[in-house]
Design a protein around this nucleic acid. Structure first.
Lengths: 237, 237
DNA sequence: TAGTGGTCTAGACCACACC
DNA sequence: GTGTGGTCTAGACCACTAG
């Protein structure tokens, strides 16, 4: 484990356990660096992580302080909870999938553009209903370049495609661009999510990227409005 | 201007202008450090910014590469576009505000908890209709500790509260926690946003924090479903 | 003036990928 | 082995805050 990760973990633990008074600065970087037997740069890097997580803030010429109410609610580490894929989001629940459609076809120009491929490059066109503890949760419409994700089959689709991509194919997912919007429910939503005509839908449009910058999925996730919300942390600059 | 900012700006410009072949790694960090007459650490820090922006990616043992389709659409710098406040989001539009209600009152327990204050600490309770180029756009319900934002008046409310907080009060906004959801429209929405009974609403619940960790606003922004979507960039780890 | 965090340096060794 | 990025060091100077 990297030294700066050891430092951030240890310091996170100390803050959680109230080992530092909340109304005073924590020890300065040089003192902490001595204690952790590292350079000041490495100490700073460890603390940077906690600043990004919203646990600490710094005042130049003054010191480093614990954020008020850092642990008052359970929203700590929200940033790191923002993982890709439903399976990652709900680790203690049982996720199952009903495959509604699963085809290989040529993409339309819109899909091709999002995936940065030609319209003559075949894509998977996949619609799944995801259930959490047996309850309908979200409809996912997904397009993926077929050549990028070889061997996708029904067995994989019952489980986690992300796990297949990362564990079986050895690819690394870098991140995604998302658009979140509200829209009216359609017939497919009403049928599978058991929602009414006038129930809204929370739709997340997403392009997922591998760590080589190649888009690997273009998807629309349609959620019941009363069962889902997106949580995010925004930091200026 | 800091050296690593100069470096990231210059490199961003070069990538935009296609000065480096898209299918090859850019020069290695040591070479670039020599060219910019800086240490490798500083060079790396400058490039880190472009990696975060999604313009570059690195492969250990291989090199640093330009992300495919980094500039194919206009979604570059989305991360930095994610600014707080409507006025920042739409710089070339005319934003006006109709103040629907503006009171000072004691917060209910929920609001007090979000703002990390006592229920005996007065808050502004503010509802505004924001118009873009004269067209109804969003209803914002906002709670702010009155003592934190002194001098809030009708003139300020016509314009940008964020500008008032940062420019007039000299406070620094660090970031926010957001929840995004779809919900059904209410009477207030229908009246001011001119939406129908069965039109969905995109609601953004937000707690805004100053750079000292103090929450300064708790707000609900209710958007017409056909006029707004939230865009975000997610990076793993 | 003393103490803090912000930046920057000039090196070092390591992990990984390609040859 | 060679070259790349990832980490880490032991210092240095600067900017800001407080007494």
């Amino acid at each position: 484990m990297k030294k700066y990760e050891v430092i951030s973990s240890e310091m996170r633990q100390r803050i959680k356990e109230r080992q530092y008074p909340a109304d005073q600065p924590i020890p300065d970087e040089i003192t902490l660096a001595k204690e952790f037997q590292c350079s000041r740069m490495t100490m700073k890097r460890g603390l940077d992580i906690l600043v990004t997580e919203g646990l600490l803030y710094r005042k130049r010429g003054h010191g480093t302080f614990i954020v008020k109410s850092a642990f008052q609610n359970s929203r700590v580490n929200v940033a790191s909870n923002e993982s890709l894929g439903l399976t990652n989001l709900l680790k203690d629940k049982v996720i199952t999938s009903n495959v509604i459609t699963f085809e290989v076809k040529f993409p339309n120009p819109e899909v091709a553009a999002r995936l940065a491929i030609d319209i003559s490059t075949p894509v998977y066109d996949l619609v799944r209903l995801r259930l959490v503890d047996g309850e309908p949760y979200v409809i996912e419409k997904t397009f993926m370049p077929a050549s990028l994700i070889p061997g996708l089959n029904d067995e994989v689709l019952q489980g986690s495609v992300y796990k297949y991509i990362t564990h079986e194919l050895g690819l690394t997912i870098a991140g995604s661009h998302r658009k979140i919007r509200a829209c009216k429910s359609e017939e497919l939503d009403q049928k599978h999510l058991f929602c009414k005509d006038d129930d809204p839908i929370l739709e997340v449009e997403q392009v997922g990227y591998l760590n080589n910058g190649v888009p690997f999925e273009y998807s629309f996730s349609r959620h019941r409005y009363d069962k889902f919300e997106v949580t995010s942390v925004h930091l200026n600059k």
